[in-house]
Design a binder for these strands. Structure first.
Ligand code: MN
Ligand code: MN
Ligand code: ZN
Ligand code: ZN
Lengths: 141, 141
DNA sequence: CCCCTTTTGAAATCGATTTTCAATTTAATA
DNA sequence: TATTAAATTGAAAATCGATTTCAAAAGGGG
């Protein structure tokens, strides 16, 4: 079952409707594939679907996140960004503060240590965020 | 040299001026000592110094961050928060999503692994952010 | 098709942040 | 101490992304 099927299931379960706009936005979102902001997706769609409003893109991305097919991220540039949740593992990010490039990484050992830290403090962790900011290879003169 | 001296040096170096407001705000900021938002500090000051405007508190906290005596943090509640940079080690945070409690922690091994990840990707890290969200001991029923 | 519910799009609103601008203050210099 | 140029202040306005409002339109079960 792909992300599209997963989303359709979510709509059905919640008594929500499948609409032309949601289909179009989901296709564009999956095709874009990067860490996209609401505005970026809206602008990307506009040339082909000028009838789709910003509010609809905004609401639909929220819905993707609720349904679990996407995740909302905040990298400190002031806007929320979304990325598709493939069935792969969770990952964290390296962000270039110069050109904005975002590289994903996974590190199981770090995740384990986070769990350990939380346990020591008596916390029960539901999610975490690890962002590393610096210069990518190209931006180091 | 304490944080106050450090800030005075920064002002001098940058050709900025030492003012009554900056002194008052710095004292209040250092005294408060928690993860304070601009608004919280403004409200804390107001009873004693009703003549100090919100914009001044805002600008002064930014200045603290620029000078290096404070750090700006974002814990996802929509407002920036500031904390004094004691000469102690860097630390990260556990945040209770129920009551908002924030617990600080240090984990040298995690920091090392972050460096290693960055090195593998050719990045040169300047800062990072590790936030663990979940329920604190009190909020786990 | 009917009817009820959900969705849409444009515009308005929201809350935090940031800027504007005229008046005031600082601090270097005469 | 008086002069002066530059920086700062405070109130209000502007900005910015996110979110809501609301009337019109569309979905979909029966
Ligand atoms: Mn990612
Ligand atoms: Mn802290
Ligand atoms: Zn770069
Ligand atoms: Zn709690």
């Amino acid at each position: 079952m792909g992300l599209k099927g997963q989303f359709q299931n979510y709509l059905r379960e919640q008594g929500l409707k499948s609409t032309r706009q949601r289909d179009i936005i989901l296709d564009a979102f999956l095709e874009a594939g990067v860490h996209l902001s609401t505005e970026e997706l809206y602008l990307k769609l506009r040339p082909y679907h000028p009838h789709i409003g910003y509010a609809t893109v905004y609401r639909t991305l929220k819905l993707f996140a609720e349904s679990g097919i996407a995740a909302e991220r905040h990298f400190g540039d002031g806007q929320a960004r979304y990325e598709a949740n493939s069935e792969e593992e969770h990952h964290d990010h390296l962000i270039c503060t110069d050109c904005g490039k975002i590289v994903e990484f996974e590190n199981h050992r770090i995740e384990q240590l986070q769990e350990q830290v939380a346990r020591e403090q008596g916390f029960c962790i539901t999610r975490h965020r690890l962002d590393l900011y610096g210069l990518c290879p190209e931006c180091q003169t």
